[in-house]
C-alpha cells in the first residue's frame, strides 16, 4: 500500500485520536454498571468506522493495528494486546463485510462491529485462560453491544455530517 504524505498524516492523526478515545473511555467505566471483565463503550470504534468509510479497509486496518500495538505499549501490558487485536480485527472484518452490503447504515455496521468485537475478546479470553468460563459472559456482552454499537454509530454519523463539507480525506 502506497500512502501519500497526506494520507499518512491522516492515519497518524486518527491513530492518535483512537488512542485518546481509548483513554477517555476509562472515565466512563461501564464495568461499574455491568461487572464483566473487558466491557467498555468501544469509543475507539468510531475511528475505525470513520477510517473504513473515508480511507478504505487497508488504511483502517493499519490504524487499528497501530492503535492496538501502541495501546499495549503505553499500558505496559502485552497481555492486553491479544485481546484488543482479536477483538479489533474481528470487528474490522465484520464491519468491512457489512459496509460492503451497502444496505446498512453506519448504525447497523457499528452494532455488528461491536458484537464482533466482543466475540473476539471472549475468544481471546477463552484461549489465554484455557478455560471456557468467559463464554458465559457472551450473551450479556452481545446484548450490551447493541447499545454501545448504536452509541458509536450515532457519534460516527454526527462526525460524517460535520465533516461533509471538508475534504480532508482526499488524497
Amino acid at each position: 500500500m502506497k500512502l501519500s504524505t497526506r494520507q499518512l498524516t491522516l492515519c497518524a492523526v486518527l491513530t492518535a485520536m483512537a488512542l485518546a478515545l481509548s483513554y477517555l473511555e476509562n472515565f466512563f467505566p461501564l464495568s461499574l454498571a455491568i461487572p464483566i471483565p473487558g466491557i467498555k463503550l468501544g469509543l475507539a470504534n468510531i475511528v475505525t468506522l470513520f477510517a473504513l468509510y473515508a480511507l478504505g479497509p487497508g488504511q483502517a486496518l493499519l490504524i487499528l493495528v497501530a492503535r492496538c500495538l501502541l495501546g499495549a505499549v503505553f499500558a505496559g501490558n502485552m497481555n492486553a494486546l491479544i485481546f484488543s487485536l482479536m477483538g479489533g480485527v474481528t470487528a474490522m472484518l465484520v464491519m468491512i463485510g457489512l459496509s460492503r452490503l451497502r444496505h446498512l447504515s453506519v448504525y447497523g455496521v457499528s452494532v455488528g462491529g461491536a458484537a464482533a468485537h466482543n466475540c473476539g475478546q471472549v475468544a481471546a479470553a477463552v484461549l489465554t485462560l484455557g478455560n471456557e468460563a468467559p463464554l458465559y459472559y457472551l450473551p450479556v456482552l452481545l446484548g450490551v453491544s447493541l447499545f454501545t454499537g448504536a452509541l458509536t454509530g450515532l457519534i460516527a454519523a454526527f462526525l460524517f455530517r460535520a465533516l461533509a463539507h471538508t475534504r480532508i480525506w482526499e488524497a
Binding site: Y53, S105, G108, F160, W169
Partner: peptide
C-alpha cells in the same frame, strides 16, 4: 468523496442486524 459514502439514517436493514445480534 469518500471511498464509500455511508448511509447516515438507520433503516430496516439496521433493525435486521440488531435482531441478528
Amino acid at each position: 468523496r469518500m471511498k464509500w459514502s455511508p448511509e447516515l439514517h438507520p433503516n430496516g436493514w439496521d433493525a435486521l442486524a440488531a435482531a441478528v445480534v
